[in-house]
Nucleic acid binder design. Structure first.
Length: 501
RNA sequence: GGCCCAUUCGUCUAUUGGUUAGGACGUCAGGUUUUCAUCCUGGAAAGAGGGGUUCGAUUCCCCUAUGGGCUACCA
């Protein structure tokens, strides 16, 4: 079998999102599994929507996700350079001449305005205008004019596009590795523009030529491309080329609205779309990505992989390496999927325990930033005691601060519940004298025979933590020790004493 | 409107002619945690509808419905 070559071919018209990353991921997995090549090709044939920072964003995103290509744009040269379509015009020109010469394509001089008028006319009649075999002979193109007239027009630099001449009436069958055979009738195809009036190729031309010349064996892309696969097949046919294998991935859909996720209607979505932070060039507004929201890249990738693919059993947690191992196109699902934010959070939680070191480093940094001295062993103990309470790394401080610092403010709702402060002050002092703060078991023992113990435990928790949260109280007391415990309790008592009811 | 793709618990999915239709997230209830979260146990929850084919259909075929995609000199 020849070497597998797959490509990820984003267009730099905006930030790459969830769906794009998943497409890249599946391509990556297939390439890695069979020791093939994963190629990055930039499809920048749309000059109007081109965004200058989109390319670097794509590169940075793939890097953060850990699914970097091993050939293509930004990854060194390769045998099929250049890997950016705006630099490949000369190649497209060569092939378009072949198409023209062999009557697979033709010049069309209809202006946008002409077509606009046509479209409106059709619309009024309740019809849909389509530049196709039925009407091409009534439009302003090289099929309907004399050779002399055509040459004259070309000499005068009248703007034109080159359109593909669809052969009608063919029923073709094309295999999709995920969906099986798909039949289509070329009658429904329109004569797609292959070369724009500005001399740039359109997606359809550039994509087919690039996939062929770059020896792409498998095309894994979103389901939205199924329709244009038909025209691509026809283009391959006219060149006499064998098309690559196709696999059209199910779309990730927007649950709270309608339609597929898209970079064109950002505000529409109730879940994060981007892998890393994106800065809107027009407004300079920053939009957080999964990275900034605290997701681990491996958790993010794991979650994405399971959105449309599964290994055929109940297992859900996979490292990237394991995904490579188990990946199979055959197990990719057909139907569109809705993103579930809660499940995404759950995925991240599964990676918290695997990333204990990172949590240690993060917490150590938090402490250093606050100029708090700490002991490494103590810190590890704290993390072990609290790690199962967090979903994201940044949450750790909120669950551990009380091991290091006194609470500086207290939740008012508890204090206001204390009706008889004299009773409290009297009893807490008796209690403090009895307690051995260095022994978890003794603490437990003394409290178990205490009258009104629930209240006093809450009170002590409150003075230590500042609110009614945190790990087992006796464990906290044991960890922070007698001196610190008593200090915090006394401070809180003072607060109660000064309180006017 | 036309063409194409899809359809199993709320969500992601397993089961590719014979299962009490399984798991995960979420949800609900109970337990542990003398707080909160975690954790544990249990519950509710599904093969869109209608026709076929078959001894037997979630599984194969057709129709309808629903969702989605495309229908640009956008990708």
């Amino acid at each position: 079998m020849s070497i597998i070559r797959v490509r990820f071919a984003p267009s730099p018209t905006g930030p790459i999102h969830l769906g794009g990353i998943r497409t890249a991921l599946y391509n990556y997995l297939l390439a890695k599994k069979y020791n093939g090549k994963f190629i990055l090709r930039i499809e920048d044939t749309d000059q109007n929507r081109y965004l200058h920072n989109a390319v670097s964003y794509i590169l940075k995103s793939l890097k953060w996700c850990g699914i970097e290509p091993n050939e293509g744009f930004g990854y060194g040269g390769g045998p099929y350079e250049p890997y950016i379509q705006s630099k490949r015009s000369y190649i497209y020109k060569f092939y378009i001449n072949y198409l023209l010469k062999n009557k697979y394509a033709y010049y069309a001089f209809d202006t946008n305005k002409d077509l606009e008028i046509k479209r409106n006319e059709y619309k009024k009649l309740g019809l849909n205008f389509s530049y196709d075999h039925r009407i091409r002979m009534s439009l302003n193109n090289s099929l309907t004019m004399t050779k002399e007239n055509l040459i004259k027009k070309l000499k005068c630099n009248i703007p034109y596009v080159i359109r593909f001449k669809v052969i009608p009436g063919l029923v073709l069958k094309v295999n999709d590795m995920i969906r099986g055979d798909i039949k289509f009738n070329t009658n429904y195809l329109d004569d797609k523009v292959l070369l724009k009036s500005n001399g740039m190729a359109t997606y359809h031309l550039a994509n087919t030529i690039d996939d062929y010349t770059m020896k792409i064996t498998h095309v894994l892309r979103g389901e939205e491309w199924i329709s244009s696969m038909f025209i691509h097949i026809l283009i391959y046919k006219s060149f006499g080329w064998a098309p690559p294998n196709f696999a059209h991935l199910p779309l990730i859909l927007n649950k709270n609205g309608k339609g597929k996720i898209s970079k064109r209607n950002l505000n529409y979505f109730k879940f994060p779309l981007f892998p890393i932070e994106w800065k809107e060039p027009s407004t300079n507004k920053k939009i957080y990505g999964y990275k900034e929201l605290g997701y681990f890249p491996d958790a993010f990738i794991n979650m994405l992989a399971m959105l449309g693919w599964n290994p055929g059993n109940n297992r859900e947690i996979f490292s990237l390496e394991e995904l490579v191992n188990f990946f199979s196109i055959k197990k990719i699902n057909k139907s569109g999927v809705f993103f579930d934010k809660k499940k995404a959070i759950w995925f991240n939680k599964q990676y918290i325990i695997k990333n204990k070191n990172k949590i240690f480093l993060f917490l150590a940094k938090e402490l250093k930033n606050r100029s708090i001295l700490f002991d490494n062993n103590f810190l590890w103990k704290v993390i072990d005691l609290t790690i199962d309470r967090i979903n994201f790394i940044y949450e750790i401080w909120d669950h551990t601060y009380y091991f290091f610092i006194e609470p500086d403010n207290y939740d008012k709702s508890f204090i206001s519940k204390i009706k008889d402060k004299n009773y409290v002050i009297k009893n807490i002092n008796i209690l403090l004298n009895k307690l051995n703060f260095n022994s978890f078991n003794e603490l437990k023992c003394i409290f178990s025979e205490l009258e009104n113990k629930k209240f006093f435990m809450k009170l002590i928790r409150f003075s230590i933590v500042g609110s009614l949260k945190g790990i087992e109280l006796f464990k906290i007391l044991e960890m922070i020790g007698k001196k610190q415990s008593i200090k915090r309790i006394k401070k809180f008592i003072k607060k109660i004493e000064s309180q006017v009811y």
